[in-house]
């Protein structure tokens, strides 16, 4: 049962409108994504080889799509002229002396033209400019690097094969280690010794820790040195005083040395002048002789009047004091 014609017309109208909306939406989306409705600048570059670049491939600048390839044609000696349309808004950031190279947007991706480089002082890209062509890393170059890596890998695996063969046959230090039972036993013993040594080191460490704990105890000299700030300050002052005294002693010794070295100084004269030494020796002998004579004279003077009585009284006092001392000692003895 069909609805009335009026309703059918409305439904068909809505249906058609939606379809047209989808079509317009698709056109706008494609136009937006392909920058169809943006103003563009036509530039070109001449390549020796484009590596499968096609019309419609993208142009990237700093990783951003800024245009498309519009035409490819041969020129001169089998060179390829690539015509490109670059978004006018992007040319503000692209220098005229930038370079173009053919690249890929992935390992198996589409070919692209990459614009790179360019100096800040150079004028901006303009309509009709011809870009310099940079060196591109082609798939062949990549394969060549892969081939070199393969050869290196082969050499490494060959070496490893030889090493593993030697190991299996017991050649070399590692091979003997693997194959020689005696050596393996020695290694095991060494490891055991190392284990014991490490155990002893651990014990020693524990003892050192205990000892350090005791040293750090309060009341002991090291403890006070470590913890008591007053003692440490006093010790510091003492050391400072010692240093000063040492410095003064050093200065004095230096002065003495200077005096000794100076033949005109008294000490230098005494130490270095032989004639002065002889005179001094003679003087001392004369003094000794004089003092001996003076002693005889004084002895004689003790036995002469009026000093004779005085010395007798002194002798009696000393005798009395000696007797009193002896009697006191005898009383104290049981």
């Amino acid at each position: 049962m069909s609805p009335p014609p009026q309703r059918q017309a409305v439904i068909v109208g809505v249906f058609t409108t939606i379809a047209i909306a989808i079509l317009i939406g698709g056109i706008l989306t494609i136009g937006d994504l392909n920058d169809t409705f943006t103003r563009k600048v036509q530039v070109s570059a001449v390549f020796d080889e484009v590596g499968g670049l096609q019309r419609g491939d993208n142009i990237w600048f700093s990783g951003v799509k800024v245009g498309v390839v519009t035409e490819l044609r041969f020129q001169g000696d089998a060179q390829v002229v690539v015509e490109m349309k670059v978004d006018e808004a992007a040319t503000e950031f692209i220098a005229r002396d930038c370079q173009a190279r053919v690249s890929s947007d992935g390992l198996i991706g589409s070919r692209i033209v990459v614009l790179y480089g360019g100096s800040a002082e150079a004028p901006r890209l303009e309509e009709g400019d011809e870009l310099e062509v940079g060196v591109a890393l082609s798939t062949d170059d990549i394969m060549r690097v892969f081939q070199e890596n393969n050869e290196n890998l082969l050499a490494i695996t060959t070496d490893l094969k030889g090493i593993s063969g030697d190991l299996a046959k017991g050649r070399g230090t590692l091979g003997r280690l693997l194959e020689d039972e005696l050596m393996s036993t020695q290694v095991a013993e060494t490891v055991t010794s190392l284990s014991l040594a490490s155990e002893e080191a651990r014990t020693m460490g524990a003892s050192m820790s205990s000892f350090a704990g005791k040293l750090n105890r309060e009341g002991t000299l090291p403890g006070d040195l470590v913890n008591d700030t007053t003692s440490y300050a006093a010790l510091t002052r003492t050391v400072t005083s010692l240093e000063q005294a040492g410095a003064r002693a050093s200065t004095m010794v230096d002065g003495l040395a200077t005096a000794v070295d100076d033949p005109l100084s008294p000490l230098g004269t005494l130490l270095r002048d032989r004639a002065a030494g002889a005179d001094l020796k003679q003087t001392l002998e004369q003094v000794n002789q004089g003092s001996a004579l003076l002693s005889e004279d004084l002895e004689a003077l003790q036995h002469t009047f009026p000093l004779k009585g005085y010395f007798r009284r002194q002798a009696r006092k000393a005798e009395k004091a000696e007797k009193a001392e002896k009697s006191k000692k005898s009383d104290e003895t049981p």
């Binding site: 069909s2 014609p5 059918q8 017309a9 439904i11 068909v12 249906f15 058609t16």
Partner: peptide, 16 residues
């Protein structure tokens, strides 16, 4: 026109 709209309805809307 009315028949065209009717057929559009049959072909388009009914097949949707």
């Amino acid at each position: 026109l009315r028949e065209i709209i009717h057929q559009c309805y049959e072909v388009g809307y009914r097949t949707l």
